[in-house]
Design a protein around this nucleic acid. Structure first.
Length: 381
DNA sequence: AACACGGGGAG
DNA sequence: CTCCCAGTGTT
């Protein structure tokens, strides 16, 4: 079978399959480029089922380019809470502000301008141009690379940037005349619903008949992918500082720095401790002091004196590159360090919150879990 | 080219 | 539990 026929068969069958089997997803109910853009940024590294509720809340609160451009950044971060990769939210708002100011609120419809926006890389630009404007641009994500590597039996390592180029060229050549948006979505839909990472489901695949990987019995081995490095472990100790007096029933939180991991999110005060220090546990809370002193010293530099009261809980959290192993210690403020009235000298990036007011701050999931566990325990008493 | 950057689902 | 998923920006 010659190459062009194999390609034409693929494009035609896949497109026909998609038109019959496409899922009814919220962002497929319009061709509003702004909605498509929001959805594509949310879908970066994130599953459809996870994104759906976030997408609804987001467009309800920020229905237009103008609404998002004029919103406070904290509001955007709060709506992104739990979705991860928070720079996506900040870059998105920055780019939307640029579209608002420079392009009169109209999302650009050409590669040059749209690619210059923060957070819009090769995948997202292709997705927006094809889905919102039906421009014949490829949108190569992980699904697409998996499907193409199997159907065309491509044994290049998909983690290599050079493989992207090969895939984009191929994906572009496959786009049927006038059907870029539907075809690109068809490719991703097949990867998500049929040609899945660990189960190719060939028997239900619309292009099985000419799939090279299946013919070679290679469908389970593709795509070829170099293994990622395991996350490096970090031991951490956090202080759950409970208030008294005016702050009875509240907990002290702080905001993270402008840049880096979980930038500008809120957290419990905590610090990394060396592994040579034993972790605490309910059975051996006496092992706390060495590691706890590091936290005490760090907070003392910010004029906050704490006294440990009891071990509260253990929390683990895995990022793609770091694993946190965290002990949470319930503490009270040391009298005399914070002068009366209490909290007067609290640094501005610190705040007291209770279970109601914590809704005003965006937290990474690991701290959300700890705070919810604490306030739930308080309610039981 | 290598690394930073979250969080969730499947088996 | 282990493994998998894989866009964009920075260096």
């Amino acid at each position: 079978m010659d190459t062009t026929h194999k390609q034409q068969y693929f494009s035609n069958e896949l497109l026909a399959w998609y038109l019959r089997h496409r899922r009814d997803l919220p962002w497929r109910r319009s061709r509003n480029p702004y909605y498509i853009w929001i959805s594509e940024v949310m879908l970066q590294q994130t599953r459809v089922d996870t994104v759906i509720p976030y997408f609804h809340r987001f467009i309800e609160r920020f229905p237009t380019v103008e609404a998002l451009a004029e919103a406070p950044e904290e509001d955007v971060l709060k709506l992104w809470e739990g979705l991860g990769y928070y720079s996506r939210a900040r870059n998105l708002q920055g780019a939307v502000r640029e579209v608002h100011e420079r392009y009169g609120g109209i999302v650009p419809d050409n590669k040059e301008e749209i690619s210059s926006l923060r957070g819009v890389g090769p995948y997202t630009s292709g997705a927006i141009l094809s889905i919102a404007y039906n421009k014949p641009e490829p949108a190569v994500d992980g699904n697409v690379m998996r499907v193409l590597s199997r159907y065309f039996l491509i044994e290049e390592d998909i983690m290599k940037p050079s493989t992207r180029g090969i895939m984009e060229k191929l994906a572009k050549a496959l786009i049927p005349e006038g059907a870029a948006g539907d075809f690109n979505q068809a490719l991703m839909e097949l990867g998500a619903m049929v040609c899945k990472p660990r189960s190719p489901n060939c028997l239900t695949c619309p292009v099985m008949e000419h799939c090279s990987a299946r013919e070679a019995g290679m469908e389970e081995q593709l795509p070829i992918k170099k293994k990622a490095k395991p996350p490096r472990p970090e031991q951490r100790v956090a202080a759950l500082i409970t208030g008294s007096g005016d702050h009875q029933g509240k907990v002290l939180i702080r905001q993270r720095p402008q840049e880096g991991l979980l930038a500008r999110m809120w957290e419990l005060p905590h610090t990394e401790v060396p592994f040579t220090y034993m972790a605490a546990s309910p059975s051996s809370p006496e092992l706390i002091p060495e590691s706890f002193k590091l936290l005490t010293d760090q907070l003392a530099e910010e004029t906050i004196g704490i006294i440990p009261e009891r071990w509260f809980m253990h929390a683990e959290h895995t990022f793609s590159h770091i694993h946190w192993d965290m002990d949470v210690i319930a503490c009270r403020l040391e009298p005399g360090i914070i002068p009366s009235p209490a909290g007067m000298l609290l640094p501005s990036h610190y705040q007291w919150v209770d279970s109601a007011t914590m809704d005003n701050f965006a937290f990474p999931n690991v701290f959300l879990k700890i705070l919810n566990a604490y306030f739930a325990a308080c309610t039981e008493l």
